[in-house]
Amino acid sequence: MTIEHDGPQHTHLDRDTQELLDPHHHRASVHLGDRLIVDPDQVLANVAMAMERLDLDTSTPVSIEEDVATLEELIALVDHFDQGPTLIAHTLNTAARVMNARYPAELVHRPLPLDCDLRRLFQVDIDERSLSIARAVFNHRLAQHADVRSTEVAVDLGGTTSQQRIEVFMAVFFLYGTKVGALQNRTGIR
């Protein structure tokens, strides 16, 4: 692929840039010199793809950093694009969509118990407030039939730092994985 500049001169794009520009590739960012270029829509698409893959095979290890979004991409999305609420709402709505399509509604809508602590289950470093917010918004979304809007999530995130917003996203993602695993164990659906 080439980009034409003023006149017949062509510049060949490097592989990473070509992948970022390819709508069928999962690359969500590229470094251009000391700048990071991020495609927020691709980050959201990668989140959904990883969640769908996790539902199809809960035994497959999923790493946020390697399979979903790098920390740099998450920081860009939350800090620079101010899309923390959008990221979390998208993750919640994707979780509900995937679970409602495969599992009995009465099990999907059952809230996670208060003692569902990701820090004990996965030894993740998430502060108490972030975990509480994640559990609350996750349970709230599962109780609803309609998608949650990012403006609703923004209210729940009021007063949180960028790091806490990223932690809430990660906690929602891991709560989803925990819930899907429990649903599969309960129903026998694999």
Rank of each mutant, 00 (worst) to 15 (best):
M1R: 13
T2Q: 14
T2Y: 14
T2E: 12
H5I: 14
D6K: 13
D6W: 03
P8K: 13
Q9P: 07
H10E: 04
T11S: 14
H12D: 14
R15W: 12
R15K: 15
D16I: 05
T17K: 11
T17F: 04
T17V: 07
D22V: 03
D22L: 10
P23E: 08
H24K: 15
H26M: 11
R27K: 13
R27P: 05
R27M: 04
A28D: 11
V30F: 02
H31W: 13
L32M: 08
G33A: 06
G33K: 10
D39Q: 03
V43E: 10
A45E: 13
N46Y: 02
N46V: 01
N46M: 05
V47A: 13
A48L: 12
M49F: 08
A50C: 09
A50E: 00
M51G: 02
R53S: 04
L54W: 08
D55F: 07
D55A: 15
T58A: 13
S59E: 10
P61G: 03
V62N: 09
S63K: 00
I64N: 03
I64F: 07
E65V: 08
E65Q: 11
E66M: 04
V68Y: 10
A69P: 01
T70R: 03
E72P: 00
E72A: 10
I75K: 09
I75W: 07
I75D: 10
L77W: 10
V78L: 05
D79T: 15
D79G: 11
D79E: 15
F81S: 12
D82F: 06
D82K: 14
G84C: 08
T86Q: 01
L87Q: 06
A89C: 05
M99G: 03
A101M: 11
A101C: 02
R102K: 15
Y103L: 06
P104V: 06
A105E: 13
H109F: 08
P111T: 03
L112F: 03
P113M: 07
L114E: 15
D115W: 14
D115K: 15
D117N: 12
R119H: 02
L121P: 02
F122K: 06
Q123N: 15
I126Y: 12
I126K: 03
R129S: 04
R129D: 01
S130G: 08
L131E: 10
L131W: 00
S132H: 03
S132K: 09
I133W: 01
A134V: 00
A136C: 00
V137M: 01
V137A: 01
H140W: 11
R141E: 15
A143P: 03
Q144H: 08
H145E: 02
D147K: 07
V148K: 01
V148T: 14
V148N: 05
S150M: 04
S150E: 13
E152H: 08
E152P: 05
V153K: 05
V153Q: 06
V155D: 00
D156Y: 09
G158H: 09
G158Y: 11
G159L: 10
T160N: 15
T160D: 15
T161D: 02
S162N: 15
Q163H: 13
I166K: 10
E167L: 02
A171T: 06
V172S: 13
F174H: 15
Y176C: 02
G177N: 07
V180R: 08
V180M: 09
V180Q: 09
V180K: 07
G181V: 00
G181C: 03
A182Q: 12
L183S: 04
L183H: 02
N185A: 13
R186I: 13
R186K: 14
T187Y: 05
I189A: 06
R190K: 11
R190F: 05
